[in-house]
């Protein structure tokens, strides 16, 4: 197809093919490294938190039957002190379509404002479209301080 081929002898053509192969490798590796690292690192920077993703909240900040919302690992989360005084730490992201649930202190339930999903203070679905309970987050309590993560 290439008109130049007719004037090139075999050894030259072979040499040029080798060079082209080298260039192809350069282009593919260079392009791949640059684009992938830009996409992997520059465009999605991982948050550098000093507390290594741990959040601490004093228990006394919370009255019985109250909830406290906070950010954990880049997502909304909530700490609830149930009426009996037991604690629960849940992801506040509704399992249906990702809205943030609200705490209804009167009914002692979570309600998702988007499509009326109801959850118990432990995150179990009471009614509505959510397919699964709210995610539970690991936590422990020591000296009156809740440490999440």
């Amino acid at each position: 197809m290439d008109p130049d081929n007719s004037i090139l002898d075999d050894s030259k053509r072979k040499f040029i093919s080798t060079c082209l192969g080298g260039l192809a490798i350069l282009a593919v590796t260079g392009g791949a490294v640059v684009t992938s690292s830009i996409f992997r690192y520059y465009l999605i920077p991982r948050p550098t938190t000093d507390n290594k993703g741990k959040i601490t909240i004093p228990v006394k900040d919370l009255a019985a039957g109250a909830a406290k919302f906070f950010e954990y690992n880049g997502y909304a989360a909530v700490l609830v002190k149930k009426m009996d005084g037991r604690l629960a730490v849940l992801s506040a992201v509704c399992t249906h379509l990702g809205c943030i649930v609200q705490w209804d202190a009167k009914r002692q339930e979570f309600i998702c404002p988007c499509h009326a999903g109801y959850f118990t203070p432990d995150g179990e679905v009471i009614s509505g479209p959510p397919p699964s309970p709210l995610d539970r987050l690991p936590f422990n309590v020591a000296n009156g301080i809740v440490t999440i993560g």
């Binding site: 690292s37 690192y41 520059y42 920077p45």
Partner: peptide, 9 residues
């Protein structure tokens, strides 16, 4: 300082 590859860009 914080964004990976940010200094390069």
């Amino acid at each position: 300082n914080e964004i990976p590859l940010g200094r390069l860009v």
